[in-house]
Simulated assay, not measured.
Amino acid sequence: MILAEVVRSGFVESVHHGSVVVLDAAGLVVAAAGEVAAPMFPRSSNKPFQTVGMLRAGLRTADPADLALISGSHFGEPFHVARVREILGAAGLDEGALRCPESLPLSENERDIVLRDGRGPERILMNCSGKHAGMLATCVANGWSLDDYRNAKHPLQVAIAAAVTDLVGEPIAATGIDGCGAPVFGFSLTALARGFQRLVQAPPQSYERLVADTMRADPELVAGTGEDDTRLMRGVPGLLAKGGAEGVVAVAIEDVGAVALKIEDGAMRARMPVLMSALRRLGVAAPILDDLATVPVLGGGVRIGEVRTAW
């Protein structure tokens, strides 16, 4: 299904295929396109569910805002890195315990600073280091082994898989290895949307609602300053958002509905225009929807086209 098109100098240069599902406040599918019942890997959109699994397994944080970072894909800004160190320190660990790959920050500005300082990729700079710090803290709380915490058969990952299955309401179709080396669980786009809806509609004192509330209260910890997830949660009151690699994003708003989408070729630039179209189908109205409805296409540094929804 064609979801977005790339227009350059007035001509449709290319298109992006994909799948999208829109649920109403009752969890019913009100709009859909593509393969919304087939298994897919939500990539980092899994993270809020994984955090719930950690909480159910005994994770406790000194600051509730830590859960936003654990559930996020941070951009390596100083406040991100400092908070990862704090999570590890509270568990009696340091960044040497992390088993995510070494990486440069996702933020171009922070990446330039790291390189100008003569440094290189580090595990703590990797966008998933918050999640890994949370996983390690959960292991410490339970007395579980640390070196192999990424293994799908580790007690931590077994507990997380059980929580994910519960939250999305369907069995995990496949377990893969994510870019950070931790397990990633496959299920349908519809299940992804319903899982996000469950987070925002859960009782106030539940772990599900705690994760949703902390992410919405500190969206800069979920992504970074000025990034898509951050802007969405700042721009639409009550909206929970978490993107994932390869063109995935999921959002939900209590008493409104939920959306999950996947761009088939993994193009990240096509996500927001399609998502804005989906949110409008739910009656959501806010200036940020206009801001994110198109993505500029540049020629010689000048805007000569755009990526826009075709759905």
Rank of each mutant, 00 (worst) to 15 (best):
R234V: 00
D148S: 15
T138G: 03
A97M: 03
V15Q: 12
I304Q: 04
A278M: 09
M1D: 11
P203C: 03
V168N: 07
G235K: 03
L240A: 11
G301N: 10
A241C: 14
R119S: 09
Y149V: 15
A174F: 13
I70G: 12
T230P: 08
R85G: 01
P287V: 03
G96W: 00
V248K: 01
N127A: 13
K131W: 10
V222D: 13
G130V: 09
G244A: 04
A25F: 11
A62C: 06
L69F: 08
S103A: 15
A202Y: 02
L239I: 15
G92F: 07
L3W: 07
R8I: 00
V168I: 15
G244I: 06
K47W: 06
G134Q: 08
D94I: 02
P273G: 03
F49N: 09
I177C: 06
G134K: 06
R60E: 08
L125Y: 14
A162Y: 10
S73I: 10
I160L: 04
M215R: 07
L98R: 02
F49A: 08
Q205C: 00
G134I: 03
A97S: 13
G224M: 13
G89H: 10
G134A: 09
T214Q: 15
A133H: 08
V256H: 06
L239E: 00
P39Q: 05
T230R: 06
S9V: 01
V297Y: 02
Q50G: 09
L240F: 11
A32L: 11
G10Q: 00
G120R: 08
V15W: 00
G34Q: 13
G53A: 05
P64Y: 05
V274T: 04
L98Y: 05
G176K: 14
A91P: 05
P121E: 15
Y149N: 11
K47S: 10
Y149W: 08
C100V: 15
E264K: 06
G27H: 05
T309L: 01
V29G: 04
K131L: 14
M276T: 15
C100H: 02
P64V: 08
P203L: 04
L298P: 04
V222G: 14
S45K: 07
D255G: 10
R271P: 02
V168R: 13
A245P: 05
G247T: 11
E5R: 15
M54Y: 13
P42Q: 11
G224E: 13
L88F: 01
D291K: 13
V211C: 05
R8F: 00
A4M: 04
R150M: 11
R111I: 07
K47A: 09
I177K: 12
V7C: 01
G195L: 04
